[in-house]
Simulated assay, not measured.
Amino acid sequence: MPDRLPGYRPPARWLHWIVAVAVLMMIPAGLVMTQEGLPRPVQDTLFIFHKNLGTLLILVILVRVIYRLTHRPPPLPDSVPPWQRRAAAVSHGMLYALLVIMPISGFVRVRAGGYPIELLDRLGFGPLIGKSERLADAASALHAAAAFLLIAVLAVHVAAALQHALIRRDGVWSRMWPGRG
């Protein structure tokens, strides 16, 4: 069991955990805000929270993707079998793709639906997209499908991380943990 594997650089770790915490707040808000019978003030608050945090996430995810493209991740330890390396590569690729698809499809759905994004409106940004029910419906369908796929891929990602942290104890978990020295 290695004591210290090469870890991710601090910017990669912080970007990972900022996105992780934000996404873990967005998922329940997104699932609850669309439920029938929810009191309107609660629903409105959740929609505003979800839309505006999603808008901020677009920027953070863009920075994260650029950082990832310009900084190679540290290698996995030799003890990780080839099939797990491939699975990790595929799941990370899916996570990045879904993290880009989700806020963009949400943005398109809201703006094409003619709804406000309060943060952008206060900053003076125009809608950027004309109102289109057809486009809003397509973006909504993409957003919903990608959301459930994201939840599934995140569940696998978290399960794999916990397996490395609690069962294998091979140092893979600590490479991304923000408290690492």
Rank of each mutant, 00 (worst) to 15 (best):
G171N: 04
E36S: 11
L135P: 09
H92Y: 14
I18L: 14
R64A: 13
R85G: 05
R134K: 13
Y67S: 09
I101A: 14
R13K: 14
R134F: 04
G113H: 12
M26S: 01
I61V: 15
V65M: 01
H16F: 07
R180N: 04
M1Q: 03
L57C: 10
I167H: 00
H157D: 09
S79T: 08
M176T: 01
R122M: 02
I151Y: 05
P73V: 02
E118T: 14
V42D: 07
L154N: 06
W17A: 08
D78T: 07
S174C: 02
F47G: 05
V80L: 12
A161T: 13
Q163Y: 03
Y67C: 12
W173M: 00
H92R: 14
I167F: 05
I117W: 03
L53H: 04
I61W: 02
L38C: 09
I117K: 12
P73Q: 10
Q84S: 08
A112C: 11
K131N: 15
I61P: 03
G113S: 06
I129P: 04
L53D: 04
M33G: 00
V108S: 02
A97I: 11
I129C: 04
S79G: 00
G54L: 02
A144D: 13
M1W: 01
A112F: 02
H71N: 15
A20Q: 14
L99G: 11
V156R: 00
A152N: 06
R64E: 08
S105G: 02
L46V: 02
E36C: 06
G114V: 14
Q35R: 14
G179C: 09
R175A: 03
P28K: 00
A88S: 15
A165H: 10
A87M: 12
M26A: 08
P28S: 05
V80A: 10
M102V: 10
P6E: 10
D78E: 15
W14F: 13
V80D: 00
R180S: 05
R86L: 15
P2I: 01
A152I: 03
S174P: 00
R86V: 15
W17K: 07
A145E: 07
M176C: 07
L135A: 10
G126K: 09
V110Q: 04
L119G: 06
F49L: 00
L5R: 01
A139F: 10
V32T: 08
L31C: 01
A146D: 12
